[in-house]
């Protein structure tokens, strides 16, 4: 068969385009107008590893979310070059436990990602997450800091955001599990699951400098299709967040659920932020997410399954 240069160039272009497009256009801020079923979340106190396992089993078990052969993307917070005792990153035991649960449920691969602050590789190392996940099969932890590993997607109906550059792995995974740690945040009040999703985007400055950050977080959370949130509130950084060092409390709780807003709302109630605490609806980005129909922050409408291990 003769291949002409024109042929070759044409085919290369088509192939390249196909390889770089997201598998499906991504979840454009869909209308949540239809009534959502009452949210159920699990809150388990006790030792980290057991609490994670218990919480996941209480909301249906990992098999409910992770089908055999699926690609799972875990998004912990590993943004800071700090050791676990600073409570600025998700605890490595939590990340490793969730990764194991995914693999046991039949996941083909688990990718753990975050776009950390500087220096990236040290965040991966000092957070303890790289070491904790080293021995788990088909599990890979990466810090992403190269723009080529991000991909721009449009946000249809977005008010604050028109498009956002997300880490590609998120777009090409079957399951996305958010693994935030519970922290205060000097702009947004708290940094839990939805705020943590800012670790998936390339241009964070834009959020701070150009738009209403609280609404932007809500739109981002509505765009990224998070299948499950497991909040690590084994510790909570009460003030000086997100970077600390600050006062650390130990709610010793793991919260799991599919409703990002409800999990964050429950997280707000777990600690006395800034020496006083506040209600979930007081946190603007959580309230904004409820307004978008992403979930509920009214805990009276949420079934909270509690347990102790």
């Amino acid at each position: 068969m003769n291949i002409t240069r024109r042929d070759f160039l044409g085919k290369t272009a088509v192939f390249t385009a196909a390889a770089t497009l997201p598998p499906a256009l991504f979840h454009p801020l869909k209308s949540f107008a239809e009534p959502q079923p009452k949210a159920t979340i699990a809150a388990v106190t006790g030792s980290r590893v057991d609490a994670v396992k218990k919480a996941v089993s209480m909301i249906g078990g990992m098999e409910l979310f992770v089908k055999k052969g699926s690609r799972v993307c875990l998004k912990p917070n590993m943004s800071f070059p700090h050791e676990p005792d600073r409570a600025t990153n998700t605890h490595p035991e939590v990340v490793a436990t969730v990764a194991r649960l995914c693999i046991d449920a039949g996941a083909a691969e688990v990718i753990i990602i975050d776009y950390p602050f500087n220096p990236p590789e040290k965040c991966l190392k000092l957070s303890g997450i790289a070491d904790a996940c080293k021995g788990i099969k088909n599990t890979h932890a990466f810090v992403i800091y190269n723009e080529n590993l991000f991909q721009s997607i449009p946000i249809i109906n977005g008010k604050e955001l028109k498009e956002v550059q997300l880490i590609k792995d998120v777009l090409h995974s079957d399951v996305i599990i958010s693994l935030p740690t519970a922290k205060s945040h000097s702009t947004t009040g708290v940094s839990l699951g939805m705020k943590g999703l800012m670790g998936l985007i390339w241009d964070r400055r834009y959020f701070h400098a150009s738009v209403d950050i609280n609404k932007a977080i809500a739109e981002l959370a509505a765009t990224v299709k998070v299948n499950l949130v497991i909040l690590d509130a084994s510790r909570a950084l009460l003030n000086a967040g997100p970077s600390g060092p600050g006062l650390i409390d130990f709610p010793k709780t793991i919260v799991a659920g599919t409703d990002q807003v409800a999990v964050d709302a429950y997280g707000v109630t777990l600690a006395k932020w800034y020496g006083q605490g506040f209600a979930p609806a007081q946190v603007k980005h959580i309230a904004a997410a409820q307004q978008l129909g992403l979930g509920t922050c009214n805990l009276d409408e949420v079934t909270v399954l509690k347990a102790q291990v």
């Binding site: 205060s184 702009t187 947004t188 009040g189 003030n239 506040f278 007081q282």
Partner: peptide
């Protein structure tokens, strides 16, 4: 690496205590 300076936030009136992302009641 001492505890943050947010101590100042915790003094004074509640309306002055919290980050902007929180509506004060």
């Amino acid at each position: 690496e001492n505890a943050g300076d947010d101590a100042f936030i915790m003094q004074g009136e509640p309306s002055e205590k919290l980050p902007d992302g929180v509506i004060t009641k």
